[in-house]
Structure formats: structure tokens, C-alpha cells
Amino acid sequence: MSNQSKRTLIPLAVGVKAPDFKLQIGNGDLNPVPENFKSLGDYKGKNLILAFYPADWSAVCGSQIALYNELIPTFREYDAEIIGISVDGVFCHKAFKETNNMAIELLCDFEPKGKYSRDYKAYNEQLGLCERALYVVDKEGIIRYSYISPMSVNPGAKELLSTLKSIQNG
């Protein structure tokens, strides 16, 4: 892990177009029908926060996902939706959400594993997990904020909120 923590993690740049994705919803339904998938286009006309994270089932009170779940109404005040993305599968996400009474949309970069996380430079090849990467994409699909936190550090929501405020203020 020591080498890993010393790497410089560079996300996609602010100002570029966000890569499209097609990710299965973590709802416990394996059926590959269109309604079980989300793509970037589904959020057209909204600001979108993408929160890549290593794994479900970390300690919940301190968890980034629990915080973002709590903040869903606040994000909506800024016309923003949030999605969490990890390499966990549909049943894992469903159980994680249900156990913790969470409403946040969690998507599965499960097969081929890490495909879209790689596009967002949010995949750790060594560990086979998503990095703790954050993106804010505006209504035109342009990246307005990008950051990769060290894997063990929960980055909170301060920068997400200030980005959404600055988008709102033009």
C-alpha cells in the first residue's frame, strides 16, 4: 500500500466532456434489459455528481456514501443528482443499500470489470477497485470538478457543494 499511497492520482481535467457510460443499476435484478442500466444521457439537463468508491460495506457512520445519501435533498436544491459507482455487483449494492436504509443510486462497474472507471481514470489496476474519485458534470455534460482522494480518505462534500454553488451562480 505504501507505493500506492505515493502515486500521484490525476483525474480527467475540468472543462472536458465527461465520457459516456452504461452501468447496471445495483437493484438486485440481473436481467440485462434497458431499464436496469443508467447512462450519462439519462441525466441530461441535470448536474450530476459521480462518486467512484472502492467498495460497499465499509464502516457506515464514517462512510462517504452514507454522507452523500444524507445530502441527496441538498444536492437537488442545486438541480444535481448523485450516483455512486464501484465494482460491486447488483446484489451487493442492493444489500448494502437495504441494510443501511439508503436511497442513493449505486451503479455496478462489474462486467467487464472497471471498464467505465478506467475511462474516468478512477480504476486502481493493482487493487482491482475503484479509486475514491469525484466528478461534477454540468447540464451540458462538461466536467466542472474532478478530484481523486487517497483511498483511505473520505473527501466529504465541501468541494461538491461549492462547485454546485458556482455552477448555479454562473
Binding site: C61, G62, T74, G156, A157
Partner: peptide
């Protein structure tokens, strides 16, 4: 709660000592 989010509180408990978040 919102004052915490704006100061980078990311979970509980979060401590600040003399005005700086203690991690």
C-alpha cells in the same frame, strides 16, 4: 449539519481543534 458539511465534516465523530479539522 450544513455548517459541518461546509467545513469538510465527512462522518461522525469529526473533531476540530482550534479551528482546524483533526483527522
Amino acid at each position: 449539519f450544513m455548517s459541518g458539511v461546509e467545513s469538510g465534516v465527512n462522518g461522525t465523530p469529526s473533531f476540530f481543534i482550534n479551528g482546524k479539522k483533526y483527522d
